[in-house]
Design a binder for these strands. Structure first.
Length: 273
DNA sequence: CCAGTATCCTGCAGGC
DNA sequence: TGCCTGCAGGATACTG
């Protein structure tokens, strides 16, 4: 269940593990995901390729090789990547397996199939339908100056805009709630009825909470030796997400929760206005 | 263009 | 035990 920090953690682990490793075999079964997964199309593109670098854009991973083009991966709600010995037992809903030259396999598992595995031709970062319309990267150093004026001309609940990938690309339901708590802004507040100063504090909170989570993922990364090779999950310190009914850590009020823009949203009625 | 809802899919927790 | 409902960390097509 990956948000940006989890995806970034996976990127860092894989960037440490796979460069120079060659793909000997591609297996799996073509299946409907967010886009149709076409193993027979991917196999000739990937077989024999060696990993070079790993990039992240929003919650997308891009694998680069010693040949033109990139592998584009999105984990959706339930996607996982495993880097395991080729003899390791196969998880349910393993859709694609890359057998590597070092005896391991890179496996893509996604029960709900909201994720995406596709090939990007050279230059595809700019033309791919999903990537091309992504908004600003939330960890971009310019976020605090760029985001407030963008939000300020919109009427939607501020929470919905944080989740809109065309505005800012990579914030998910957890960190949207956490950033709003830190900034003291009610998730249902209309963005255009929020001062630019407060929107600036919100942008700063977005960066703070994401950076802290990435750092925590980096900490987990040190003892990355779990036998099943699962990646991207680490204990999280959350103030409001999933804590409805519990006491706010700042003021002691009961955390509330309602559906906003189709997503369950938790907030402190005292601290957030 | 904008805002809000419906939808893809499986797994799991909780109520009865 | 099983059956049912609702909900899940995402993204986007569609409607008004």
């Amino acid at each position: 269940m990956p948000e940006l920090p989890e995806v970034e953690t996976i990127r860092r682990v894989l960037e440490h593990e796979v460069p120079g490793v060659r793909i000997d075999r591609v297996s799996g079964r073509s299946i409907n995901m967010r886009r149709p997964l076409a193993i027979e199309k991917l196999a000739p593109l990937l077989t024999g390729a060696s990993f070079l670098t790993l990039r992240r854009r929003a919650k997308y991973l891009l694998f680069d090789f010693d040949r033109p083009g990139s592998l584009l991966v999105h984990l959706g709600m339930s996607g996982r990547i495993q880097l395991v010995d080729e003899m390791a037992p196969l998880a349910d809903h393993t859709h694609m397996i890359l057998t590597l030259s070092d005896g391991r396999q890179l496996r893509f598992v996604d029960p709900r199939r909201f994720g995406l595995i596709d090939w990007l031709a050279p230059g595809g970062e700019d033309t791919d339908a999903s990537l091309a319309r992504l908004g600003i990267e939330p960890l971009d150093p310019g976020l605090v100056s760029i985001l407030p004026p963008l939000l300020h001309e919109r009427r939607s609940p501020i929470k919905s805009l944080l989740l809109d990938q065309r505005v800012v690309a990579g914030i998910g339901n957890i960190y949207a709630a956490e950033a709003l708590w830190r900034a003291g802004i009610h998730p249902r507040r209309a963005a255009n009825r929020t001062s630019l100063a407060r929107l600036g504090r919100l942008a700063q909170s977005v960066q703070d909470v994401l950076k802290e989570a990435v750092d925590r993922g980096g900490t987990t990364l040190r003892d990355f030796s779990k036998p099943d090779g699962e990646m991207g999950f680490f204990a999280q310190q959350l103030a409001v997400y999933g804590r409805q009914g519990e006491e706010c850590g700042r003021c002691g009020s009961a955390i509330r929760s309602e559906v906003i823009g189709g997503r369950t949203t938790a907030w402190c009625p005292e601290c957030q206005r």
